[in-house]
Every structure is written in C-alpha cells, then in structure tokens.
Amino acid sequence: MSPAVFGHGHLRLYLLFVLDERPMHGYEIIQALSDRFGGTYVPSAGTIYPRLAKLETEGLVTKQSDGRKTVYAITEAGRAELDDRRDELEGIENGIGDSVRRLADEVRSSVSEAMTTLRAELAAAAREVRDDARASASSARDAASRATAAATAGAAAASEAVRDATTSMHSTISETRADGRAQVQRADVLLAEFRQDMRTELRTAAARGSVDPSVVDELESGLSRLRAQIGSRLG
C-alpha cells in the first residue's frame, strides 16, 4: 500500500467502512477499493489481507468460509469504532478524491511518455523505410543504366533479363522484410497477451490465497523449455 494514497491507519478505517456496506471476500474488497479510485489504484493482496487479519485479531471483523472463499464481515465493535471516527472518515474520503486526481495525472503522464516513445519508434521506422527506398532507387538506377548500355549495344534480350531479375530481387527482399516484421509484431502481441493473462490469473489466485509455488515452478520450467526450443530453431 502506498502511503501517498492512504495516511497512517487510514486504510484500516477505510476497510471497516467498506465492510459496513456488506460482507465481502478478499477479492471483492480489493475491487471495491479499486472502484472508489476509478481504477487508478488497485491495492495488492499483500496489502489487504494482513490488515484484515489484524482487524480480526482486534475483534473488529469476523471471517468465515464460504466454499473456497473466505468472507469478512464487520462486528458491532467495528461499527462502534467507525461511528466514533466518522469525522476522520470524511477527511479520508476527501483525500481519496485528491489521490484519484493525482493518480490520474500520473497515468496521463505515463501515457504521454508512452506516446512520445511510440512517436520516436515510428519516426525511426519511417527513416528505415526511406533508407530502404533510397537503396532500392539506387539499385534501380544501376539496373536501368546497365539495361540502357545493353540496349545501345543491341542486347535487348539481355536488358529485359536484367530488368526481370532486378524486379524479382527487390520483390523478394521486400516480401522477406515485410514478413519478418509482421512475424515479430505477431510474436510481440502473443507474448503481451500471455503475460497479461498469466498476471491476471496469478493475481486472482493470490487474492484467493491459493497460489501453489509448484505452479510458478512449472511456469518457469515450461518457459525455459519453450525458449530453448524456439532459440534452437531461430539459430
């Protein structure tokens, strides 16, 4: 939990406020906090669960199993503390509004930096395309010069063969480069999707407190094998 979002002891009070609405399991509590921040701040399971455990120890919340989930509920003692600190809670609510605006500004700044980087990458790609075009134009001029010399010498058939060979060569090079870039972009998308899916599933499992270390070990070994297989083919 970032102290820039909640002051000392404020997250503890805010958890009681959230549970005063209704009993929730851990993931629902995390989602409720995320919704109040408009998605700009999502507390981790490592932030929420230790505080819930402390509230339970103090008798301010209870927990009970509901299938595979653990549901937390506020107690009368928790409501009493909440009532005693309503003025402080109002200040926290106002602070959340400020935090949302600050975090939104940080998100906009990150997006701006990403756009700047993207524009730089696009400019570099455009330069590469122009360089390729100049190289192709130079090669075309050379081929044209050779064809003219051959025509002047009366070798019209040889000139035609040179033009055909040049056209075929440039076509093959262009197709090879385009296909290579397309495959790299496709691989980038697949890797990003895999990373996002795995991250979401692991975070969801962590929120339920059910991440088995053997799962991560299997992920690590599987990725190592896959990297070795693909590396041998690319090499």
Rank of each mutant, 00 (worst) to 15 (best):
R119S: 04
A120H: 06
A120W: 02
E121W: 00
E121V: 01
E121Q: 01
L122E: 13
A124N: 03
A125T: 09
A125M: 15
A125W: 03
R127E: 02
R127L: 02
V129R: 00
V129L: 00
D131Q: 08
D131K: 08
R134T: 00
A135E: 13
A135W: 01
S136H: 06
A137N: 07
S139Q: 12
A140G: 08
A140Y: 01
A140F: 03
R141H: 10
D142P: 01
D142S: 15
S145D: 14
S145I: 10
R146F: 05
A147N: 07
A147T: 03
A147P: 00
T148F: 11
A149I: 05
A149R: 11
A150R: 02
G154N: 14
G154C: 10
G154T: 14
A155C: 06
A156V: 13
A157D: 12
A157L: 11
A158T: 11
E160F: 15
R163G: 03
D164K: 15
A165F: 09
A165E: 15
A165G: 11
T167E: 14
S168W: 07
M169H: 11
M169E: 11
M169L: 08
H170W: 11
H170I: 14
T172M: 05
S174D: 14
S174H: 10
E175H: 03
E175C: 00
G180S: 09
V184C: 00
V184M: 08
Q185N: 13
Q185C: 05
R186G: 04
D188M: 10
D188K: 05
L190G: 14
L190K: 09
L191I: 13
L191Q: 12
Q196C: 03
